[in-house]
């Protein structure tokens, strides 16, 4: 565990906490894409099946449980909690997210490190995570008023991806045989998707203005 990896995980954790804070405390999910949250729930459910087969550390297992639990509870909150559900921007959140799932599955069947059930699902989760933020970014662009918590949530998620890239660079130079092209390329693609958002986020921060994305 290096400092970039730890900082990345903590940023990821912070993003989930910010979102849960918004939903649980303010009872609002305005500006939050249910499509993206559903995709994340699938990502974690398919990636963390190895909880049952391999043990790395208490930290590793605990974090997996936290990400699984939080992603599913966010989806359930948004779908079934009366007050939270009422604040959902259903008309704006129209990205056809199920169309992302099948290509990712096919790609995982074609390009993977090992052809085993768990490995293909793990690879599928990497591909799907890379594009899972798209419905959220589209929704942000359509939402006139982006509140601070939603902006911070996406900012922290993007930050987590950026820190993971630093972690891979660090590991590549410090650990022999640490080469994972599939993880790196899908991680890079995912981080690049945030580039535009980061630009406008930093602009609004610099000018001390509310975050607004151009349509």
């Amino acid at each position: 565990m290096n400092i970039f990896r730890l900082a990345g995980d903590m940023t990821h954790l912070a993003s989930v906490l910010v979102l849960l804070l918004k939903i649980h405390t303010i009872k609002s999910c305005a500006g939050v894409s249910l499509k993206t949250q559903e995709l994340y729930a699938i990502v974690f459910a398919t990636r963390y099946l190895d909880i049952f087969t391999s043990f790395y550390s208490i930290y590793n297992t605990l974090m997996k449980l936290v990400f699984l639990g939080s992603s599913f509870s966010i989806v359930l909150y948004m779908k079934y909690h009366k007050t939270v559900h009422r604040s959902y921007d259903r008309e704006q959140d129209t990205f056809r997210h199920w169309f992302l799932v099948l290509p990712c599955l096919l790609l995982a069947l074609l390009i993977h490190e090992k052809f085993t059930f768990l490995e293909v699902l793990w690879t599928f989760s990497l591909y799907l995570e890379a594009v899972a933020i798209l419905p959220q970014l589209v929704l942000l662009q359509r939402t006139r008023n982006i509140d601070n918590l939603t902006g911070q949530y996406v900012f922290l998620l993007g930050g987590y991806r950026g820190l993971y890239i630093l972690n891979w660079i660090y590991r590549y130079f410090t650990e022999p045989h640490f080469v994972h092209w599939i993880t790196w390329i899908s991680g890079l693609v995912q981080t690049l998707l945030y580039a535009d958002f980061f630009f406008y986020y930093s602009q609004s921060w610099k000018n001390n203005k509310k975050l607004q994305l151009p349509a």
Binding site: S54, N60, W122, N167, F178
Partner: peptide, 10 residues
């Protein structure tokens, strides 16, 4: 890498 360290990331 060996299998044990394969998926130690989240």
């Amino acid at each position: 890498g060996d299998v044990a360290s394969q998926h130690d990331e989240l």
